[in-house]
């Protein structure tokens, strides 16, 4: 009976994860929308929609990676993940010593990975809704041949404006999330 099954197994729900993730998403979307609006001169609504799409996109990708890789993880790592999810701490096994460095390295990797995904995602999103933020028309080759490349403003900036905007937005939202996480664990430890 599916109904009994639900009642039996419903004893442990990921409610805290859902609530906290929603909260962090709202904070990140608000911050990133502000940054995108200022740097890209967008309206209120588009910037919020862009920020929401990008953050949801990276969150969903993160879930896919977690849900996909968790069953494949070696048993010591898997039990460390279980320990962290259920009890909020790692426990003593042969991986415990290297976990701190691992967490920091993962955090850094995630930052740059989400930055890259968000920059690409913004390009795809704007392309999909018909207002591309980057010019996809192939550059004219005749000018390049005569060395005018440097003078044309379209080719010259080494970093596109939207990439910089996404980098800033990502840095701000990650700082805010880190602060919130520290506050949370600080409060719980106190």
């Amino acid at each position: 009976m599916p109904f009994e099954l639900l009642v039996d197994e419903a004893a442990v729900l990921p409610l805290r994860a859902i609530i906290f993730q929603s909260l962090l998403l709202l904070v990140a979307i608000a911050i990133e929308a502000g940054v995108l609006r200022r740097r890209l001169k967008l309206g209120f609504q588009p910037s919020i929609r862009y920020a929401a799409s990008l953050n949801l996109f990276t969150t969903v990708l993160g879930w896919f990676v977690f849900l996909g890789l968790e069953p494949a993880a070696p048993p010591p790592l898997r039990t460390q993940i279980i320990s962290y999810v259920l009890f909020g701490q790692f426990y003593e096994n042969n991986l415990a010593g290297s976990l701190g460095a691992l967490v920091i390295a993962t955090g850094l990797a995630i930052f740059f990975l989400t930055f890259w995904i968000k920059a690409k995602g913004l390009e795809w999103l704007t392309l999909a809704i018909g207002t591309p933020i980057v010019d996809y028309t192939p550059p004219t080759l005749t000018r390049r041949r005569y060395g005018y490349t440097r003078r044309t403003p379209r080719d010259s900036p080494n970093t596109p404006a939207h990439t910089l905007a996404v980098l800033h937005a990502n840095a701000w939202s990650f700082s805010a999330i880190l602060l919130l996480l520290l506050l949370r664990y600080g409060l719980e430890a106190a």
Partner: peptide, 10 residues
């Protein structure tokens, strides 16, 4: 699971 940041035992 009181110290968990993810789950709640209902």
């Amino acid at each position: 699971f009181n110290r968990s940041g993810f789950v709640l035992k209902v």
